[in-house]
Amino acid sequence: MTELIQFVIDVLALGGAYALMALGLVIVYGILKLVNFAYGELIMVAGYTLFLMDGTGLPWLVMAAVAVLMSIFFGVATDYVAFRPVRAKSVTAVLITSFAFSTILQNAALLFISPRARNIPLPDVFSTTVTIGGAVTPLRNLLTIAATIVMLTLFTWLMRRSILGIAMRAAATNFTMARMLGVPANLIISSAFAISGLLAGVVSLFWLGRIGSVVPGIGLEPLLVAFIATVIGGMRSVPGAVLGGFLLALIDTSLNHILPQDLLKFRDAFTFSFVILILLWKPDGLIKGPASGQRT
């Protein structure tokens, strides 16, 4: 029983972070039908922001808020540097330019900060553990779950109730028609990148909180997670992204329990092979997105 509780908490906490990451990728993909390869670097940006503010004596929550703001800022900057110059050319072109932007950010960190890991300030609550039904778990996990619930609720409210959210959903199926109703294209696209940055920023706090430090290459794993979760869930489906995130966490956590020690180091290889199997069965992912729209 204890082990089950532990397992469920692990899956929910990891899955929450994965789902929010995937959501940030899908929100941009849904509208532009383009993939943002520089998405993982938002985690890095947030991490270095925290590092640079270390010792300023600001309350941690303020530092966290600034880190999230920086993530949003760089999310929107991705649009201007990597997407706008080549938009409407091809998926491949934008993948390459966003890959290039990701390289620029990483190498800038390398050049101006350091190739070595840097510790980031973290609040005490991140290192405390709690006991639930006999299972000992870091409080951080419960905070991740809580943050996931808050973010998903906020996201749903935004997309369902606000005119901006409705416009974004509309733009995801038919961008030209949305524009013919007076919805400004650039506003929608920038909002999508900003939301993407917000989600990555929030995830970064928990992701970095688990590791405690930041390196230039830190964005790779969260990027991969977001990629894979969205491919499993269906590239253009918001519920699919969430489902994909939790499913990926379930696969990862289960493999952690099932695999013998000497195979555990190959976990990622197993996970991705599993993903390839899912795609064999359902090439479009588990949940089909909204009616297809043309690329703008």
């Binding site: 005119i163 416009a167 038919n174 949305a178």
Partner: peptide
């Protein structure tokens, strides 16, 4: 917009 409700479609018309 097929995934939006009738009212949402109309709201968007009044953007």
């Amino acid at each position: 917009f097929p995934d939006l409700t009738v009212v949402e479609n109309l709201r968007l018309g009044a953007y």
